[in-house]
Design a protein around this nucleic acid. Sequence first.
DNA 1: CCGCGTCAAGTTCAT
DNA 2: ATGAACTTGACGCGG
Length: 299
Amino acid sequence: MRIGYACLTVGVPRTSFRTCLLKNASNEKLETVIAHNLDALDHILDYNEAHRIRMFRITSDLIPFGSSPVNRLPWPALFEEEFNGLGRKIKETGLRVSMHPGQYTVLNSPDPRVVQNAAADLAYHARVLDLLGVSPEHKIVLHIGGVYGDKKTAAQRFIANYHRLADAVRQRLIIENDDRSYAIEEVLDISAATGAPVVFDNLHHTAKPSNTQRTVLDWIRQCRSTWQHGDGLQKIHYSQQAGGKRPGAHSESIRLEEFAAFYEGLEGLDLDIMLEVKDKNQSALRCMEWLESRKSFKA
DNA sequence: CCGCGTCAAGTTCAT
DNA sequence: ATGAACTTGACGCGG
């Protein structure tokens, strides 16, 4: 079991990412920012290794406008050395990385331009992971997308567009339930038609549940069957509700008792758990410490 | 130099 | 039909 965190660190020097506004995205500006961001990622890898963190999501903002025609910089070639070095470090330290395009990457839109942009964005994410030289166990997580008043048709469009994606994308793509439109059972149906492994997200599941007769562990076990050998260990997303905020808002930090109850509910199932929490690495470390103390207590 | 409005994406919902 | 909300941290301008 690995515990991971997403995109950013809290309290770690030289790990902040930069970006620029669209209107300022000159080649010179982009080159400076990308060089900075690859260096920041390098420091994050060092931090993860020093703290035995073995799972991490790389921010989609690593390369600003990475899938946009606005970015005409030949960054893959320019930074080949840096990517090689980062990839070597990832492999040497046994880190499992992933990426996760946000809510604006919509593969099932009825607008072909939106679909084209989504495909380009997914290709960008796969490009980054390929440049790092990491295996297909290092995934790209995607939500299904919009509903457009007709979920059946929208799901079919996702499936059709999935099959048109490049191999390099499809071998990394995994799909996740969201908190508004596509509940876990619907994502599992789409997985059956595409072969894409399913990421179970507990907080999204609470906000948008499928059949409530079934337990969380039931759903996680069913998701497990969508993960094949080359995909690596099944991953899930775990987060907790922020008190007083809208349903689905991520908490500031992980409440350990609640995490412990969730963990015990897994009944020993081995998983990789990506935490989605504001204080990032700090909660990851606390959860890892809790796991360690639990093991020594049990032993 | 601080603070806060703006940004970038696409869908959905409110006006 | 038009636009705000959603989401997020960092940008970048005004004071």
